[in-house]
């Protein structure tokens, strides 16, 4: 197993853990953490699979670079919306969430 493939497998594990935590937790901040871990897993999978058995590949690496910036932008926006929601409702989770 090459280094790249090994880290791609770690990416699968991260995606799985993220999905599990995303479903289990109700607190929105924890869900945001889970979402971010899932994103990291996807990035690892993307780069790791593309580089398996070949050298470094700039194209998926550039895509992941844009992906990281988009992820932080969406996280920051989610936090803005979460704080606004928390201010109006005083709750850390959504009401329709059972």
């Amino acid at each position: 197993m090459s280094t790249a493939l090994f880290h791609a497998c770690i990416g699968i594990l991260l995606c799985t853990m993220g999905l599990f935590a995303f479903i289990v937790h109700r607190h929105l901040l924890r869900r945001l953490l889970a979402f971010n871990v899932m994103g990291s897993g996807c990035f690892l999978l993307l780069v790791g699979l593309a580089q398996d058995g070949r050298g470094p590949d700039p194209v998926p690496q550039a895509l992941v670079l844009t992906g990281i910036v988009v992820a932080v932008a969406s996280t920051a926006l989610a936090l803005v919306i979460f704080r606004r929601w928390y201010r109006v409702s005083g709750e850390g989770q959504l009401p329709e969430d059972v």
Binding site: T3, A4, H7, I10, F43, L44, V47, G48, Q51, G55, P56, Q61, A62, V64, L65, I68
Partner: peptide
């Protein structure tokens, strides 16, 4: 991990 994957930019 990104360093190990030869992706210093990331």
């Amino acid at each position: 991990v990104w360093v190990r994957l030869e992706a210093p930019d990331i």
